[in-house]
Measured scan of single mutants.
Amino acid sequence: LRLEVKLGQGCFGEVWMGTWNGTTRVAIKTLKPGTMSPEAFLQEAQVMKKLRHEKLVQLYAVVSEEPIYIVTEYMSKGSLLDFLKGETGKYLRLPQLVDMAAQIASGMAYVERMNYVHRDLRAANILVGENLVCKVADFGLARLIEDNEYTARQGAKFPIKWTAPEAALYGRFTIKSDVWSFGILLTELTTKGRVPYPGMVNREVLDQVERGYRMPCPPECPESLHDLMCQCWRKEPEERPTFEYLQAFL
C-alpha cells in the first residue's frame, strides 16, 4: 500500500490517493489515533465489506491497528460538496442534479434492503467520479466515533443540521433518520452546496425544527421536489418515504 497524494483533511483524519497491490488506484482514509476503537472498527469493517453495490464506494481493505487505515475505490472528482461548490458546479442544471440524487437514493435503497443504517448521509460523504457518477461513502463509521465533541451530539463536530430530530435528541438512528438526511442533501444539491438552514446555528436549528420549522423551497427548485424534501422531514419517522420510493420518484 503506497500513500501518494494527500487529498484532504477532516476533523478525524486525512484522505490520500495511493496504490494498492502495486496496480490498483485507491483512496486511503487514515484516522487520528483515539477516534475509534480498533476492535469496534474491525467489526464494522466486516459488515462494510459485505455491502456491495454500484452506488456505494467499495471497501477494499482495512488496517485495524492505530493509525487505522481504510482502503476504498478511488473517485476522481472528490466529495459531492466540493464538486457542487467548484468550477463544474456552476454548469450543473436541475436534470443532472436530480440524476445525482437518484443515484444516491439507489445506493441508499440497497442499504435499506440490507437493514443497515448510514448515520451520516450528506454531500460531504458522497463521492463523485467521471460522468457525474455518484456513490455513497463512509457508511456506518459515524457510530464508532468516540470523540466527546461528537458523541455528545451537541458538540461542534456533530452534523446536527443533517440529523433527524429523534436521532439528534435521543440517539434513535434508523434508515428513517437517513431519509431525513437525504432530504437535507437534496437542498445541498439544489443550492450547489450551500450550508443548510443558512444564518442559523446548530442550537437554533434543533429548537426550530422541533417546533415544526422546515426549510423553504430553494430558488429555481420545482415545488414537486420541495414537496419530496418535506416528506423526508415528516416528524414521525414511519411517515417518511422509503429510499425505494425516493429512487422511483426521482
Rank of each mutant, 00 (worst) to 15 (best):
Y150T: 03
R2A: 09
Y110A: 07
R2T: 02
A45R: 03
E149D: 06
F243W: 15
D178H: 01
T23P: 13
G171E: 00
A109R: 15
G22Y: 14
A45Y: 03
E244T: 14
V26Q: 04
A152N: 03
P159L: 00
K157H: 07
V71N: 03
K176I: 05
Y60M: 12
E44A: 01
K85Q: 11
A123P: 02
A167V: 04
M48R: 02
G86K: 10
P237N: 14
K32M: 07
V117M: 05
H53I: 03
E236C: 13
D82E: 10
T30P: 00
G212P: 02
E87L: 13
G107T: 03
K85M: 12
L51N: 07
F173M: 02
T88H: 13
E39A: 12
E239L: 12
E87F: 13
G140N: 02
L132V: 08
R240P: 01
R172C: 09
R93M: 09
V117L: 07
V133Q: 13
S106R: 14
F243A: 15
W20G: 13
G129A: 08
F12G: 02
M200S: 07
W162V: 01
L51P: 01
C230Y: 15
Q103L: 03
E204T: 14
Q46C: 09
P222H: 05
A61W: 15
Q46M: 09
L186P: 01
F83G: 06
V117Y: 01
K161M: 08
L186T: 07
E188V: 00
V98Q: 07
Y213G: 05
P196T: 04
Y245L: 12
I28N: 04
L186G: 05
T191V: 07
A101M: 09
E14D: 06
G10H: 03
L169M: 10
G140D: 01
L92P: 07
S37I: 04
R172E: 04
L59F: 00
Y150K: 02
T191L: 11
E130V: 12
A27N: 00
K235L: 07
A156E: 04
C11K: 03
Q231H: 13
L250P: 05
K135R: 14
V128F: 04
E166V: 00
Q58F: 10
Q43I: 06
Y245A: 09
M114Y: 05
G155L: 03
R172V: 09
D99Y: 15
P237R: 15
G129H: 12
M17N: 10
L169W: 14
C134S: 08
C134R: 00
Q43L: 07
G18F: 07
K161A: 05
G13D: 02
E188R: 02
L56C: 14
M215S: 06
G212A: 06
M200V: 05
M200P: 02
A109Y: 15
E146G: 05
T23R: 14
S76Q: 14
F139P: 02
T24S: 13
F41G: 04
D138L: 00
A109P: 00
I175T: 15
I70V: 06
F249R: 06
D178A: 03
H226V: 07
V209M: 08
Q58V: 10
R119L: 02
W162T: 02
F249Y: 11
Y150M: 01
T187G: 07
R172W: 06
T151R: 07
E14K: 15
F182K: 01
K192V: 07
T19I: 12
T191A: 09
T163R: 01
E65K: 13
A105S: 13
L51A: 01
W180S: 00
T163A: 02
G22V: 12
L84D: 01
E220N: 09
E239S: 11
E244P: 15
G129L: 07
S106V: 09
F83A: 10
E223Y: 14
Y110D: 07
L144C: 12
M48D: 01
P196L: 06
W16E: 15
C230G: 10
H226A: 10
P218S: 08
V98H: 14
M17P: 03
V195E: 11
R122A: 02
T19N: 08
E54W: 12
M114L: 04
F139Y: 02
M48V: 00
Y213T: 04
C217S: 10
C134G: 06
A109G: 14
K85Y: 13
E65W: 10
R143C: 02
I70W: 00
F182V: 06
R194L: 10
A142E: 00
E146R: 09
Q46T: 09
L84R: 03
L144S: 13
E87C: 11
P38C: 13
A142N: 00
K50N: 11
L51Y: 03
Q247M: 03
P198T: 06
A152Y: 03
E87K: 13
E87Q: 11
G18D: 04
T23I: 12
L51E: 02
R113V: 13
W233R: 00
D120H: 04
Q46E: 13
D138N: 00
I68N: 07
E188Q: 00
K85W: 13
G171W: 09
A101I: 11
G8P: 00
W16D: 14
P219K: 09
T72N: 03
